[in-house]
Design a protein around this nucleic acid. Structure first.
Lengths: 209, 209
DNA sequence: TTGCCGTTGTAACGCTGTTAGCTAGCTTGC
DNA sequence: GCAAGCTAGCTAACAGCGTTACAACGGCAA
């Protein structure tokens, strides 16, 4: 019986240490920016020595990956909170706009999430959840027979790459004179090009959408 | 008279040194990749000591900027070589596809050109020329009254950010199962959404949509 | 010749990610 | 109770990075 509580306590301590380090990582990251983040600074702040960090996360990349995983979850949660109606086009538009908003609002996180880091060795953290959310909605569009391109996958990739470009460009050049309505306009334009005219849906709105 | 030839000779040597360093930089960059490039390695290869490099380029960023400027010129030259016909839509499509092709073919250069580096201090090297080329063509579209969005600038930004996204996503995740027709399909879709149906243009080009 | 300026090299500074090797404490087997 | 083993943590160091203080060499002007 003491064995079990011991293991539990040990695991709890493990989790505590990981949490402490991760929180300090995020704090420092947001405070100093992606490029001025360093293990040494993290060490100064988090109360643990460098080898402990390497003990828990193996690597600087491992540490950042752990944080990224959490942040992707937050992004997915934010996307899930987007209200979904009957019109799949409006749904996908809402998701795309929310995605871009998220990126523009949290540039450091976005950069962390979508910049491939130096060593390409390990598989990059997925962010599958949010990607799947978008894809599902597109499949719904496809099922409604309103997709113009061959397959929903291509459409999904086009849309998500446009969104990434929308965020990326504006993050990397905040000073540039970007159009105020760029996000909405470009997403709308792409959707117009991807989606067949909705008149069929307008006439009989009660159908399976 | 000796003054002039002296100055000329001096300048020639300057240029020679710069060329030598820049060539070695590019060579090493392509060979080792962006992340494994370092001044020390460059020093080993190019025959000059570190302070000389700093003497000529001031900075690691300055060195890379100099290279970037040249590469942007190459990209612009490549875009200029794209055949241009009477149809502005086909022209803009050709430019966009050529841009993406360039990016996919020269990932290291692309990364260098379009990744903002650590210190955001200095203004990033422009690449104005190639951007203007695209914008001009879009203005031609606008003049033909076939643009759906409010202004050609927004359209141009949307298109160029889509193209950047197209390259960027595939560079950063070469293993992902990208659609084979992604480039053409997504560019076509965006253009479909941006451009008014050409029938109106065929019948009477003067209308506003 | 003397002095200046531009070009180059040596050697170092301060920073980075990372790790070898040690200590302290807890748990298990005898 | 005591030695063995495991884990978590630290100190101190290594190799590499961008960068620069400083010295030395060269050709030109006075």
């Amino acid at each position: 019986m003491s064995t079990e509580t011991h293991e539990q306590r040990r695991e709890a301590q493990r989790d505590l240490a990981r949490r402490t380090i991760l929180d300090a990582t995020e704090e420092l990251l947001l405070e100093a920016g992606y490029d001025d983040f360093s293990i040494r600074r993290l060490v100064e702040r988090c109360g643990y020595a460098a080898p402990s960090i390497y003990h828990y996360f193996g690597d600087k990349d491992g540490l950042l990956d752990a944080l990224i995983e959490e942040r992707f979850a937050k992004l997915a949660a934010q996307l899930k909170r987007v209200p979904r109606g009957a019109d799949p086009v409006a749904n996908i538009r809402g998701l795309a706009v929310a995605f871009v908003r998220f990126g523009l609002k949290n540039p450091t996180h976005f950069r962390l999430l979508f910049t491939p880091r130096a060593g390409d060795t390990k598989p990059p953290p997925s962010g599958e959840e949010s990607r799947k959310l978008i894809e599902e909605t597109l499949v719904a569009l496809w099922d409604a027979g309103r997709l113009r391109t061959g397959d929903p996958q291509t459409a999904g990739q086009a849309l998500s790459l446009l969104c990434q470009g929308l965020v990326w460009g504006r993050i990397s050049r905040p000073d540039f004179d970007w159009s105020k309505t760029l996000t909405e306009d470009s997403i709308d334009a792409l959707l117009r090009g991807l989606v067949a005219p909705d008149e069929a849906a307008k006439r009989s709105a009660g159908e399976t959408v």
